[in-house]
Computed example of a mutant assay.
Amino acid sequence: MTEELNSFPQVLTIAGTDSGGGAGIMADLKTFQMQHVFGTAVVVAVTAQNTLGVQDSFLLPLEMVDAQFASLASDFKIKACKTGMLGDAAHVHQVALNLQKYDFGPVTIDPVMVAKGGAPLLSQDAIATVKNELLPLANLITPNLPEAEALTGIKATSEQEYPQLARSLQKMGVENVLIKGGHSNAEVVRDYALLADGTDFWVSSPRTHTNRTHGTGDTLAAAITAQLALGHTLSEAIKIGKQYVTKAIEQTIQVGHGHGPLNHWVKVD
């Protein structure tokens, strides 16, 4: 009876808050809700943030991060999880320790480094900790182009180099890689997926010219995490997540004066 009561698909986001509601844990929980999974959260950082930028941020004490992990592990049956903003090397290390301690299913790493408005969300010294401690624990990493370049040290001048970036990330220990192409100037946004078994594929969408793209990366990683918890294969989860984000950008809502949020209410046929 206890198992039946705890059988609904449950997922976890490990990240920072966004007081403006468009990115971070707020975007993740909205996405989880729309994907019909139950969302939980470990708050690593709190930000004072709106569509105009990040005005301030505060990293929670490491003990509080540990306490949240322990609390969730003692009650919930989490089937998949993701990370977002982790702040600095100490917090990346602590998150990695907890992911080794508790089995929360496949781990999707969204290596959030810079906010849409340009504010840094990961210290420079933490990049090495992400590479050395977090990536080997990951089932999937979903960097945008600047993040992939920062992690690999490879400067990509065209889409033809995405496979090289992905292979370099795999060599760091992560099984599956999704390089997001949103930072290119092309009219078709193409993301490149390289899976653990060596198969690869592209997912594409027409570019929507809008500044209402705040939280795009968080939303995509959250949608993939939700779909994995629902039992989809990784390739299916990536394609469903891409569809959801594309629609959420296309069917925009007018919120804020700057880089506005996605329409998380959107429904994909």
Rank of each mutant, 00 (worst) to 15 (best):
E4P: 02
Q10L: 02
Q10R: 03
T13H: 09
A15M: 06
A15W: 12
T17V: 04
T17E: 08
S19P: 05
G20R: 10
G20A: 11
G21T: 08
G22F: 09
A23H: 12
G24I: 08
A27L: 09
A27Q: 05
A27I: 06
D28C: 04
D28H: 01
F32M: 05
V37H: 01
A41W: 07
V42R: 07
V43M: 13
V46F: 13
A48E: 03
G53V: 13
V54T: 05
F58S: 11
L59Q: 14
L60E: 11
M64A: 13
V65Y: 12
S71W: 07
A73Y: 10
A73D: 11
S74Q: 07
F76R: 05
K77C: 14
I78P: 04
C81D: 08
G84C: 04
D88R: 11
A89T: 07
A90V: 03
A90I: 02
H91V: 00
H93M: 12
V95L: 07
L97Q: 15
K101A: 12
Y102N: 05
D103E: 11
K116F: 11
G117V: 06
G117E: 14
A119D: 10
L122V: 10
Q124F: 12
D125N: 14
V130T: 06
P136L: 10
A138F: 04
A138N: 06
N139Y: 15
L140V: 07
T142G: 02
T142Y: 00
P143A: 08
N144A: 00
A148K: 01
E149L: 06
E149Q: 15
T152E: 06
I154H: 08
I154K: 05
I154N: 10
I154P: 08
K155E: 13
A156W: 07
T157F: 12
T157Y: 11
S158N: 14
E159P: 10
Y162F: 15
P163M: 09
R167Q: 15
L169D: 09
G173A: 04
G173D: 09
G173I: 00
E175M: 09
V177S: 01
V177W: 03
L178P: 09
L178I: 04
I179D: 02
K180S: 03
H183L: 06
S184G: 14
A186S: 15
V188Y: 06
V189G: 09
R190C: 12
Y192V: 00
L194H: 02
L194I: 05
L195E: 04
A196S: 13
A196F: 00
D197Q: 01
D197H: 00
T199S: 15
F201V: 01
W202F: 12
W202G: 05
S205F: 10
P206Q: 13
P206R: 11
R207Q: 07
T208W: 02
T208V: 15
T210Q: 13
N211M: 14
R212S: 15
H214E: 03
G215P: 01
T216E: 05
G217R: 01
G217C: 07
A221N: 10
G231I: 03
T233C: 02
L234V: 02
L234S: 03
E236W: 01
I238T: 01
K239T: 11
K239S: 13
I240A: 10
I240Y: 14
K242Y: 00
K242Q: 04
T246L: 07
K247Q: 14
K247I: 03
K247W: 10
T252S: 15
I253D: 07
Q254I: 13
V255A: 00
G256S: 08
G260M: 02
L262K: 09
N263G: 06
W265Y: 15
V266I: 12
K267F: 12
V268Y: 06
